[in-house]
C-alpha cells in the first residue's frame, strides 16, 4: 500500500479529521507534513522521525479529543517534542540545537514525481539555502497549513513579523529559482 498518494484538500483534512477512526488514517493525512515541519527543528531525518513519533503518540493518546484544528495541535506537539529532544540530547543549549535545524541533505524533502524532478530538486535546493527563520515560516504556512496567527503563536512572534518573513522567503525563493533557470 502506498501511503500519501492522495493529499487531501485543506478543508477535507481539517474538517473531516475528527471523523477518522484509526491512527493510520490520521497519520496518512498529517504525517508527511509533520515530518517536514519537524525537519525544521531537528538536526537529522532520524531525529525528525523520532520527534514526530513522540508528538503523534502524545497527540493520539491525549489530545485527539481536544477542540481546535488537529494540525495546529500536532505542530505544537511536534515543536515541543523537538525542544525536549534538543534539551535532552545535547550538551549545548536548546537554542543552539534549534538553530541547527533545517533540511539536511539526507533524503528528499518532497515526493518525487514522475516528471519535473529537476524542478523539485531546484526548489529543494533553494529551500535549503533560505535563512532558517524564513524557511521555518514558509514550511509552517505552505505545508503546515497554519495561519499567520497560528505560526506567530507557535514561534512567539508577532503576526506581522511572520508575514514579513513569509514574503521575504517567497521572494528569495523566486530569486533563487529564476537564477537557476537562467543558469540551467
Amino acid at each position: 500500500m502506498t501511503l500519501f498518494k492522495q493529499t487531501p484538500t485543506n478543508s477535507e483534512s481539517m474538517e473531516d479529521a475528527h471523523q477518522h477512526e484509526s491512527w493510520q488514517k490520521w497519520f496518512q493525512l498529517y504525517g508527511p507534513k509533520l515530518l517536514l515541519c519537524a525537519r525544521q527543528w531537528t538536526r537529522s531525518l532520524a531525529d525528525a522521525e523520532d520527534v514526530v513519533q513522540d508528538a503523534f503518540v502524545r497527540f493520539w493518546r491525549h489530545q485527539r479529543q481536544l477542540p481546535g484544528e488537529p494540525m495546529a495541535l500536532l505542530v505544537t506537539s511536534v515543536r515541543r517534542a523537538a525542544i525536549d529532544r534538543a534539551r535532552r540530547d545535547s550538551r549545548r543549549s536548546a537554542r543552539e540545537e534549534f538553530a541547527e535545524g533545517g533540511l539536511e541533505r539526507a533524503g528528499p524533502v518532497f515526493e518525487t514525481p514522475l516528471d519535473g524532478d529537476e524542478r523539485r530538486e531546484a526548489i529543494e535546493a533553494a529551500l535549503r539555502r533560505l535563512p532558517d527563520e524564513q524557511r521555518e515560516v514558509l514550511v509552517l504556512k505552505i505545508w503546515g497549513e497554519l495561519t499567520f496567527e497560528q505560526i506567530a503563536t507557535q514561534l512567539e512572534l508577532s503576526p506581522n513579523t511572520v508575514a514579513s518573513r513569509y514574503r521575504y522567503a517567497l521572494a528569495a525563493l523566486r530569486g533563487e529559482l529564476t537564477a537557476a533557470d537562467c543558469h540551467g
Partner: peptide, 26 residues
C-alpha cells in the same frame, strides 16, 4: 504562481520504520 507551485509539492512520507514504531506504540 510560485506559492501555488509550492502547495502542489507533497512532503515526503515517513519511513516504514516510523510507521512500524507508531504501530507498536499505538
Amino acid at each position: 504562481s510560485l506559492e501555488a507551485e509550492l502547495k502542489r509539492l507533497r512532503p515526503a512520507g515517513p519511513s516504514r520504520d516510523l510507521l512500524a514504531r507508531l504501530g507498536r506504540d499505538l
